[in-house]
């Protein structure tokens, strides 16, 4: 089947693995917040301080800036940039790519050493890469997960909501 005709179905047990992995990363680094995004900018999971505003917009912007850096890499004839660091006055962002599909982001402050973040993020990306591999291999179909009437219900909702 063509790639655009398939969705990435993340089963509950893998979501639990992802949550665990993000929680460990935040704990072990002393970071503030960890986010797992799809390269399309959608947030798959997050962990850390609960006061983050607008995770959705954050996901879109991080994925956008990462995708943009990939284009810079191409212009420089690099294969890609695997990691990105953005330094702020209060907080820093460390962004790492997982198998060209997911993006792991950790937000941390001055109390956390960047070296530690790099090492532990690398470990977390390896772990998440195996989760991704299992997710890609799993064989549940859309209808098994959503039920066969989902599409009709969805179309009704679209008609109801998307109007002047």
């Amino acid at each position: 089947m063509d790639p655009q005709l398939t969705s990435l179905i993340v089963p509950p047990e893998e979501v639990a693995h992802i949550d665990e992995c993000l929680a460990r990363l935040v704990d072990d680094t002393g970071g503030n917040y960890a986010l797992l995004l799809d390269k399309s900018g959608q947030v798959i999971a997050s962990n850390g301080d609960g006061n983050r505003q607008d995770t959705t917009a954050l996901g879109a912007l991080i994925a956008g800036s990462f995708a943009s850096s990939q284009q810079i890499a191409k212009l420089l004839r690099e294969k890609d940039f695997r990691m990105l660091l953005q330094q702020g006055v209060r907080e820093n962002l460390f962004i790492a790519l997982i198998e060209d599909q997911w993006i792991l982001t950790i937000i941390f402050n001055k109390g956390t050493h960047i070296g530690l973040v790099k090492v532990l993020t690398k470990k977390a990306t390896e772990e998440l890469a195996s989760v991704l591999e299992r997710v890609r291999k799993q064989r549940q179909t859309r209808d098994e997960v959503l039920g066969s009437n989902f599409r009709t219900s969805m179309e009704d909702t679209i008609d109801l909501l998307f109007r002047d």
């Binding site: 969705s7 990435l8 179905i9 993340v10 509950p12 999971a45 997960v145």
Partner: peptide, 9 residues
């Protein structure tokens, strides 16, 4: 690729 996150539905 759309994402169906069954864990958080």
């Amino acid at each position: 690729m759309a994402i169906i996150n069954v864990g958080v539905r």
